[in-house]
Design a protein around this nucleic acid. Sequence first.
DNA 1: CGTCCATTTGAGGTGGATCAACCCTAGTGG
DNA 2: CCACTAGGGTTGATCCACCTCAAATGGACG
Lengths: 232, 232
Amino acid sequence: MLMQTLNTQAINTQIGGKIASSLPVSDQFGAIARHVGLVATEFTYRKDEEIYGEDEPAEYVYQVVSGAVRTYKLLSDGRRQIGAFHLSGDVFGLESGASHRLAAEAIIDTNARLVKRASLERAAGTDVQVARKLWALTAGELRHAEDHMLLLGRKTAMERVATFLLEMDRRLAVAGMMALPMCRRDIGDYLGLTLETVSRALSQLHAQGILGFSGARQIVLRKRQHLRDMDA
Amino acid sequence: MLMQTLNTQAINTQIGGKIASSLPVSDQFGAIARHVGLVATEFTYRKDEEIYGEDEPAEYVYQVVSGAVRTYKLLSDGRRQIGAFHLSGDVFGLESGASHRLAAEAIIDTNARLVKRASLERAAGTDVQVARKLWALTAGELRHAEDHMLLLGRKTAMERVATFLLEMDRRLAVAGMMALPMCRRDIGDYLGLTLETVSRALSQLHAQGILGFSGARQIVLRKRQHLRDMDA
DNA sequence: CGTCCATTTGAGGTGGATCAACCCTAGTGG
DNA sequence: CCACTAGGGTTGATCCACCTCAAATGGACG
């Protein structure tokens, strides 16, 4: 369980078997709140570990430091819909209401900063900038959900995969190459497809020279415009 | 174009061919903002009239007074995904960013109150309660979108229709009967199905005695628990 | 080097889409 | 008051994109 180097004043504590660190909020934590007095705790979650469950009280708000997180809903028979993938820098678990609407799990080993929801609420009550930021974060999630409804309701399998590749390319490509943290089943459950259909679409794009593989999860896009055209 | 009785101090004006009325905000406008000084304008939209377009600057926030509104996204070839139906009392068109993410149209003749986005923003800057309310409204839309992603990505046609019926029953049933304002095509574009599939599902539920018709859009649910069971 | 998953690929089935009549019913005009 | 019409809704027949089931392949890790 590797942890990112923290502020030297950080106090490391052991909670529930996970390594935690308290640290004063600095500019590096700006994404959640630039507000003096807020304390962030850093946690490490192992691959496939649950971070919180659906309908669980929303005690904390999270920011991914490293790793990746999936949020999802389940039907009673196990069918799963992944609502979003959260990557480095992303905030997740922010709720206006009392409980989490989706469950969250680490896709791979993940470090996250936590702040108490209550302290954010308090900060928002005195600092308009904080309140505005919380609203903007929720609005950003809503925008993503609206785009995703169009994908799930109306796009073909190939269009869904093309959209997914462009999204991931934008969010995690380094030097034109992306290293996907999630498996084909996760991608399928995000796109409303089976893992086999995802695999077939990727194989077809590979055969057409639109993407290159170096390992199943290392992908380089070779014809982005072609993907944009097919994403409808 | 019938209009609801307004405050006697209201000033009626004619704008762009539509009847508009300015009125001081009172408690009846609480859903958008209980903030002195905000002015709401009332507009009437005819059936199928566009209220705003996708990506159009978000100048106003709307509240349905009477009627019904659909918000939707289109793909280039005309495929449409309806994101939500807005009924009496619902707020729509609220954006944290600069532009509308979905287009909006009146489903039937509709009256709506409008307030300038800028004045809401101003109010939110001074009144924490207003800021909190705006956030809660956006969070409520997000919750609906998250539920709907699960429906679109993972539910069967029958499960989608059952979910739809329960949602509409909850939102617009009067004396156990609901009068749907939207046509089968709208329902299909909301549920990610074709209008034929929606019609077949409703016919099957009718044949099973789970619902009764009095006209294609007048529906009474006879076995709500049965619908809840099939909505997975 | 062997084991275990993740991924790919193949073969066949099916739920919902598509294409096509037909049927209501509300509104219109005679 | 009734015949006519148009648009919405229903129903039927067929199709096909994606799912399901199955097996082979590959890659990471002990």
